[in-house]
Design a protein around this nucleic acid. Structure first.
Lengths: 341, 341
DNA sequence: CTGAAAGCGCTTACAG
DNA sequence: CTGAAAGCGCTTACAG
């Protein structure tokens, strides 16, 4: 009587180079060479080995190779908040370049929490060849200690001695501030992002400098978080400053500002102009559509992977890539309203 | 003369269990046991070993363990389009559960392309213990052949013999169709998603059945793709049917429908009601905000990971999780307009 | 061009 | 409770 077969598909243990060696009548080391360094083996032997490998459906065991080489072929990416649409394009760019290089992308989200971020970074670093930190909230010391383990690349963050990929900041901010100035705005607000965000610091500085150069005053207001809710909640405080325009650290804040303004009866752009950063998904779909500073996140993701692969290869080129930024003028900015009666 | 030190941080090769063994004066096998099966070792030896490990800053080499066990601790996720906001919550849910289990998430995007999807799936499967296929466009045969290699779980897709996590469909569709019926709509359109999408097939079927039961007619219209552009381009054909309401396969299509309607001077919801699926980021921010069928993608992501871990553990429980769906009524649906003069 | 051997860092029967 | 040894699947000097 036949043994009852289970319904489950059989998963026989995968063939190894020893199986191939036996089948092809050669040594395992020859198989390894035939498969990895074509040309170092006689044409006929190589053909015989490849045929045997195909027949057996051989697949290299990457763990065995990793154990040998110390390299995994994995690149890790940790980001501060993966539900922020600004990162979608970055991840997609990073994923594409990683896949093209035959590597695979490892992935964790720190939910804007330093402890989770550190934990995730350490966890991923054990199984990856290097780490990309996107919008990290870690301290310089923490990042440095991570980089003592394996190569680390920061994205939109600068730490001395660590390779980085950062978006260019100045051009977009120049355009945004000048745009508001041309529309007649003289008193503006900058609604801050997280204090631990390097990019927030940069935007703050450049806005301050540009505004000063044009004779505008800027009030810096903290937000509860770089989220729609944070922007929503900030509306009364923004209005209280008497400013006629607000630049928000990111589009999420700007979205919330728009939402809150509408509920508070503040007419955008007639009595308040709003500018965001990032040009995230949906920015052009709002009514009115959002004026915002776009950065090319996809390029940034690609640049980060390139920088990391360089660092892993031991190449010291710390050329920090700087994808351009540009102001996209849409409907949330307008001329300053004539003074009231 | 001192040898000039390079600026680069030194990355000394990591300590192994042999280093610990030497320092603690025991055998490597004892170290392994002390670290992995606490209790099987005398308390004092274990303490000595742990102290030595700490002092050395020991970290387990996961490749070595993997080579031994055949398991990597990696779970792979391949999705059809990671820029579709519907997946953000799914990924976040999956990532969280994966991390909680001490595993790590591997990640690829197929950009709605079958070849890329198959390629990515095979690539990831070599370095992961199992694979989650989200919104797969692969054929049943392709999925089956993948699952011959390692455990595979499908998300929002059913293949005979493959464990799956799917969102419940019926309740949300019932609510949507009934909602339109109550508003007086009798002729509606279903704007289709990709024909290779299992979920599109399900939605199609249930809408057809529900509409028939309520005496409504439904016209099925193909779209160029499940994107904003696809929805935008479909507006003339939707209008040409004379239908008073349209249900779109997903919110991206619905967004495009809204955008196209506005440009074509079609007033939503006065002369056309629009319903989407997914309740993606931005759906509530539009003007008018989108009426849509929400599914709890985060739960779906969690369910997928659970199912995959079950499959890897060899547990045969094919209990397919079914996170609920519900209609979120907002501003894009309204009573059918009185017949013209 | 090809083979025999050692080793990557761990785990796990097998003894004691 | 602990140690010596073999083995996971591959790669790479070292010989020939």
């Amino acid at each position: 009587m036949g043994v009852p077969m289970t319904e489950r598909t059989r998963r026989p243990s995968a063939p190894t180079i020893y199986d191939i060696a036996e089948k092809a009548g050669v040594a395992a080391s020859t198989v390894s060479r035939a498969l990895n360094k074509p040309g170092r083996i006689s044409t006929e032997t190589e053909a015989r080995i490849r045929a045997a490998a195909d027949e057996l459906g051989y697949r290299l065991n990457p763990m065995a190779r990793s154990l040998q080489s110390g390299l995994t072929g994995n690149l890790a990416l940790v980001m501060s908040d993966m539900t922020n649409p600004v990162y979608f394009d970055l991840v997609r760019g990073a994923e594409r370049v990683t896949a093209d290089a035959g590597c695979t992308l490892l992935f964790a989200d720190s939910q804007e929490n330093v402890d989770i971020e550190l934990d995730a970074a350490q966890r991923l670093l054990r199984v990856a060849d290097g780490l990309m930190l996107v919008g990290s909230r870690l301290s310089d010391e923490q990042i440095l200690s991570l980089s003592a383990l394996k190569p680390v690349v920061t994205v939109n963050r600068l730490v001395d001695g660590i390779p980085a990929a950062t978006a260019e900041v100045e051009v977009g901010v120049h355009q945004a501030v000048r745009h508001l100035h041309e529309l007649g705005h003289r008193d503006i607000v900058y609604l801050e992002g997280p204090s631990a965000s390097w990019m927030n610091g940069r935007r703050h500085e450049v806005i301050a400098a540009d505004a000063a150069a044009l004779g505008m005053t800027v009030t810096f207001l903290d937000s509860d978080g770089p989220t729609i809710e944070g922007g929503h909640a900030a509306v009364p405080r923004v209005v209280a400053t008497g400013a006629t325009a607000v630049i928000a650290f990111n589009d999420l804040l700007a979205f919330g500002l728009l939402q809150g303004s509408r509920e508070a009866g503040v007419d955008v752009p007639v009595s308040l102009s709003v500018v965001g950063f990032d040009d995230i998904f949906g920015a052009n779909l709002l009514t009115p559509p959002l004026t915002t500073v776009r950065s090319h996140m996809r390029n940034l993701g690609e640049a980060a992977v390139l920088a990391l692969r360089n660092a892993i290869a031991g190449e010291d080129e710390r050329e920090t890539e700087r994808p351009a930024t540009e102001l996209i003028v849409r409907g949330t900015t307008g001329p300053v309203a004539p003074a009231g009666p």
